[in-house]
Amino acid sequence: MSSRRTTITVTLGLVLLAGCNAEERGHAIKLDKGVYAGASDSVLSDATRLALNQRMIWQTDGPARVATATGPAAMPSGTAAVTGRMAGQNY
């Protein structure tokens, strides 16, 4: 009788512990020091990088802008296009 109760207890314990995994808790449980264990971020496309560099020209002054810019910075297009906002919104 006693061994049966022990078996049930151990089985129940194992079942409960099986629920303690990272996915069900929603975050990492086992930590490896110095290693980021969260979700990975998206990588910027070349078009987005180009758009960012173009917008940097807006931060320069008059003389510097004349020296470095070939024209007004274009709004991002293609994969870098604005989503979820008004089209053509500058800021």
């Binding site: 910027l44 960012l52 917008r55 940097m56 807006w58 991002p76 870098a80 296009a81 800021y91």
Partner: peptide, 12 residues
């Protein structure tokens, strides 16, 4: 940044 825009603090 994903929209191809720089931080607003700097742009404003």
């Amino acid at each position: 940044i994903a929209e191809g825009k720089l931080p607003l603090c700097a742009e404003m």
